[in-house]
Simulated assay, not measured.
Amino acid sequence: MQQLILASQSPRRKQLLEWAEIPFEIVVRETDEAYPEGMAIAEVPIHIARNKALAVKEYLQKNNLGKTGAPILAADTVVVLGNRIIGKPKDRQEAIAILKDLSGLVHEVITGVVLITPEKETSFYDVTRVEFYPLTPEEIAFYVDKYKPYDKAGAYAIQEWIGVIGIKSIDGDFYNVMGLPVSRVVRALTAPGNLA
């Protein structure tokens, strides 16, 4: 498989591509993660991922880095409770409040994926429904203080302690909750007419 460019600093996405044995290098540019008001929730992570991918594409072209033929992969993950997008917590207090909101309920994790090649752009999103058992205040405080989940949408990582002890059920792709529906990415990369 051709080497791709991962437009993400996420250690989880890096790990998932390594597990899938996809050759890649990381190139990241700062982008605004705002989105238009009224945009459909499922389109939000695709919109943010597209901006990440386009920023990297522009950077590579402008600096003539010779990688402009390599496919660029970007992704963004949002956590949705009801009709509310839950972002990354600013601090301890907000992380605790988010996990209290998620406790005992089902929420959705939506990852938008954008893959840009010189010929075309492919985009899709994947949805996983996650249900937490009721979490005690002590469990929530322990997790936040030990794992400091401030860089994670929804204030948790499913592969960490809180996921191990707190998740009641998952409907969908586990790896999507980690930040990348990697099996769908592989299929997009190897689809006829793409990059096989």
Rank of each mutant, 00 (worst) to 15 (best):
A7R: 02
S8F: 06
Q9G: 14
Q9W: 01
R13K: 08
K14L: 09
A20T: 02
I22N: 10
I22P: 12
P23N: 14
P23H: 07
F24H: 07
E25T: 11
I26L: 04
V27Y: 08
R29F: 03
E30C: 03
D32V: 00
A34T: 15
A34K: 12
A34W: 02
Y35T: 02
Y35F: 15
P36W: 01
E37A: 14
G38Q: 09
G38F: 12
A42V: 11
P45D: 05
H47S: 13
I48W: 06
A49T: 08
N51E: 07
K52E: 03
E58H: 13
Y59G: 00
Q61A: 14
K62V: 01
N64K: 12
K67F: 02
K67N: 00
I72A: 06
L73G: 05
A75E: 04
V79H: 06
L81A: 13
L81G: 06
G82D: 11
G82C: 09
R84Y: 07
I86R: 01
P89I: 03
R92V: 11
R92D: 13
R92W: 13
I96T: 10
A97C: 00
D101F: 00
L115P: 10
I116Q: 05
T117R: 08
P118E: 03
P118L: 01
E119V: 04
K120R: 15
T122P: 01
S123W: 09
V127I: 15
T128A: 08
V130N: 07
F132N: 06
Y133K: 15
L135C: 08
L135K: 06
L135R: 09
P137C: 00
E138I: 04
E138W: 06
A141H: 07
F142C: 00
D145S: 14
Y147L: 03
Y147R: 03
Y147W: 15
K152G: 03
A153P: 07
G154F: 07
G154H: 08
G154R: 10
A155T: 11
I158H: 13
W161V: 02
W161P: 01
I162R: 09
I162V: 14
G163W: 11
G163I: 13
G163S: 08
V164A: 15
G166T: 09
I167V: 15
S169F: 02
F174Y: 15
Y175N: 14
N176Q: 14
N176P: 13
N176S: 12
M178G: 04
G179E: 01
L180S: 09
V182C: 04
R184T: 07
V185K: 10
R187G: 02
A188Y: 10
L189F: 11
L189A: 02
T190A: 12
A191F: 00
L195T: 11
A196L: 09
